[in-house]
Nucleic acid binder design. Structure first.
Lengths: 259, 259
DNA sequence: TAGGTCAAATTGTACATACAAGTCAAAGGC
DNA sequence: GCCTTTGACTTGTATGTACAATTTGACCTA
């Protein structure tokens, strides 16, 4: 496998299925940016030569990645890196800042603080010791100068020890955490609320403006890594999802092609 | 294939992949109730004998159904029908009434009307002729006597011609439509709103109570079958999702077993 | 009786092969 | 110059075979 599983622990390499290793290799190549969107990746036969596994195994890996939206395949043409922004499902909630950023002038401000203090209620959410110090950050995300999201985040120091030293003016907490503590699980809770006066002023909204509150907890390596409250003014937020079901009907083909 | 594809059109049977036909057969057996939850389905070798296709093809069909949450497999034991209520993802939004119904005394009332009239704005949403008659129903879903959802629905007569004749006191519109026009695609849009006075009274909420508005369109056979506005009071609604991602990590196993 | 052992059944992975189907470009014929 | 044909390359499906891993139950033994 040579280059296909460089980051895997040695004792685990033997038990990881080959098709999973191929999937990891492809995903890693995409996540690192080596293979950008619409890039044509090596063909099945090339991957066979590179990896040493059979074509059926490579084919299974690529097929599953296609089903999961990582790739886009065209018979007779090749396999291409899919534009995941085009995938509209719940997964996109976590990347909503990325989506919006690509469609306007995006910016964010560390309005209040980045600090460390203990808080028993939050400790329970993070599943840590009640008297442990926790990291807290609060910032406002803006699009074309107007706020669209208030982010109130608590971070588990065990998952991201150097969170306080991160320059949050250069990368968002989400961007940093995605690298520092790659997430393995996500929990979402959704509510409609009227924010308090402080939040109203930060978001620049009226007293009776309803907001969507997205409560999100992320896990990494068996620990709760982060807990975030994301408040969206109701008139500056929307989430659209559209997807084909797999109930007795063939999957909708993708007729578009890449020249 | 004999019994494996009785409902498929004859001209299509030749072009439908075999693994897809096996998937359809299994799904049909589950949807008709022949195979209830936790039922042990025929083994791969039995399905090979029944269908005449190879074990690899059967295996692929069962594996994909497992990934999609229809089945649960235990090595050395067999394959069982999974409890789809245990799957927590966006798909569950469409079944939220079903979920809630199983956890309390659920009821619903046809409060306003079931009628037929033309409305150009709605016709555009349903992608029909602007002057066509459309079916409209409006009802309130209650849990333990208190409303938790206001359903405002428009139905495309081409997709469900006998919608006005359905006894909506015996089955919900969603239940009927799922049978009459099995859905192939869904579109969701989510907003936070303050409802109007009429809706406030129907839901029994105060003037400043924010609500979640879920706008949903369903497709069936290439047509827009239905368009629904589902209004949830913010204090009587929550949506929790938690799922494992497939980013460089093996899928979380299901250690539980069925005796 | 209690415990260990072995065989059968089941699912999971991997490989080699074959053919079908779609795309593209080069070669050839008019 | 333009069109057709051919062939190479690509992905999609299907089969047969082999072995590994897990569970269950029957069987044997102390």
């Amino acid at each position: 496998m040579s280059e296909f599983a460089p980051t895997l622990p040695a004792d685990d390499a033997g038990s990881t299925p080959l098709y999973q290793q191929v999937k990891d290799y492809v995903r890693r190549s995409i996540l690192t940016g080596d293979w950008p969107v619409d890039h044509r990746i090596p063909s099945e036969n090339e991957l066979v030569r590179l990896s040493g596994v059979s074509r059926m195994t490579v084919h299974r890996a690529l097929r599953e990645l296609t089903d999961d939206g990582w790739l886009r395949r065209v018979q007779g043409q090749g396999t291409f890196v899919a534009d995941r922004r085009a995938r509209l499902d719940l997964l996109e909630i976590r990347n909503i800042a990325d989506i919006i950023r690509s469609r306007g002038s995006y910016s964010w401000d560390v309005t209040l603080h980045v600090r460390s203090l203990p808080l028993p209620d939050i400790a329970e959410e993070l599943e840590t010791e009640p008297d442990a110090d926790l990291f807290h950050s609060r910032l406002v995300h803006c699009l074309d100068g107007t706020p669209f999201q208030l982010e109130d985040r608590w971070v588990n120091p065990a998952a991201a020890p150097d969170y306080l030293g991160v320059d949050l003016t250069r990368q968002t907490p989400n961007e940093y955490l995605m690298r520092a503590a790659p997430l393995s699980e996500v929990e979402h809770r959704l509510e409609a609320v009227l924010p308090g006066p402080v939040e109203q002023e930060l978001l620049g909204i009226g007293r009776h403006q309803p907001c969507l509150l997205l409560h999100r907890r992320t896990w990494s390596g068996g620990r709760v890594a982060s807990r975030a409250w994301l408040t969206h003014p109701g008139d500056r937020f929307y989430l659209a999802t559209r997807f084909a079901h797999d109930v007795g009907l063939p999957r909708s083909p993708r007729p578009e092609q890449t020249p």
